[in-house]
Computed example of a mutant assay.
Amino acid sequence: MRKHRGLAPEDRLFFDKSRFARLKRAVEDLSWLLRRGYAQKAAVELVGNRYQLTRRERHALIHAAWGGENRRRPVSADELAGRTLCIDGFNLLITLETALGGGILIRGQDGCYRDIANVHGNYTLRMETEEAIKLAAEAIKTLKVKEALWYFDRPVSNSGRIAKLVNEIAGRYGAAMRAKTSDRVDSLLKACGDVVVTADAVILDSGVAWFDLAGWIIGHEIDKPLNLLDFSSVQ
């Protein structure tokens, strides 16, 4: 039986106001270090130890902080009509599943929405999976996108199954999108030639044109309460 992509037991820490205030200060410190060229791994360890953050809080810290790289400004929703989207499949899907399932969401300093599901190599379909894909299909139609290409990492478990499901839902809802698996998703995204959909900072900082589709869907198509940790105003 499928489970929800909801809160983890340790996520109760994020609802403690004093701990969240401490996490915000940690985000400020990490961003300061990243802007000055410190290596992320060493900087996260330094800041995490200073503020005595748990492993889960450190994961949120990484997703929230931003070194202020010379990234291109995001493409606006009004500019997407007639464009092709290259979608980081698991990145988009898991964030939407998390939003629908009531899990913890991060809005980072760069304004991007991210989950902290920490899925690496082992993806399992959730109760929210089909609804998340349907929301993406409706968004693609609403935004008048010419075509959306979903790329899923082949080595990740169930990647073929989820690509097949995306294609089935695309046909069912008449959405101009198709999915495939690949061993080189990052390379395909960087070579997209049009608009990339991801919240992966490494890809965003490579100079691609990008759009935060997860954030747009969360803001326009999901009307349920969110467990959102917003760091976008932290400098």
Rank of each mutant, 00 (worst) to 15 (best):
K3H: 09
A8G: 00
A8E: 09
P9Y: 07
P9S: 07
E10A: 15
R12S: 12
R12H: 12
F20T: 06
A21N: 14
R22C: 12
R22S: 13
R25T: 07
L33G: 03
R35N: 01
R35W: 03
R35D: 08
A42P: 00
V47R: 12
V47N: 08
N49M: 08
Q52C: 07
R55E: 12
A64C: 10
W66G: 02
G67R: 05
N70I: 12
R73L: 13
S76D: 13
A77C: 05
A81P: 09
A81C: 08
T84C: 14
C86K: 00
I87D: 03
I87K: 04
D88C: 09
F90S: 02
N91A: 11
N91R: 05
L92Q: 10
E97N: 07
T98H: 00
T98K: 04
A99S: 03
A99L: 09
G101N: 03
L105I: 04
I106Q: 04
D110A: 08
C112R: 10
Y113M: 00
A117Q: 03
A117M: 03
V119H: 04
H120M: 06
G121H: 05
Y123P: 01
L125V: 03
L125Q: 15
T129L: 05
E131M: 13
E138Y: 09
T142S: 12
T142H: 09
L143V: 06
V145G: 05
K146G: 04
K146A: 14
D153P: 07
P155L: 13
S157H: 12
S157V: 12
S157Y: 12
N158K: 14
S159I: 04
A163P: 02
N167D: 11
I169K: 09
I169R: 11
G171R: 10
G174P: 09
R178G: 13
S182I: 02
R184C: 06
S187K: 08
S187G: 01
L188R: 12
L188D: 04
L188T: 03
K190Q: 11
K190G: 02
V195D: 00
V195T: 09
V195A: 02
D200T: 11
V202C: 05
L204C: 06
D205C: 08
G207S: 14
W210I: 00
W210V: 11
D212P: 01
D212M: 14
A214G: 12
W216E: 03
E221R: 15
E221M: 15
I222H: 13
D223H: 15
P225H: 15
L226Y: 02
L228T: 14
L228A: 03
F231E: 00
S232D: 09
V234R: 05
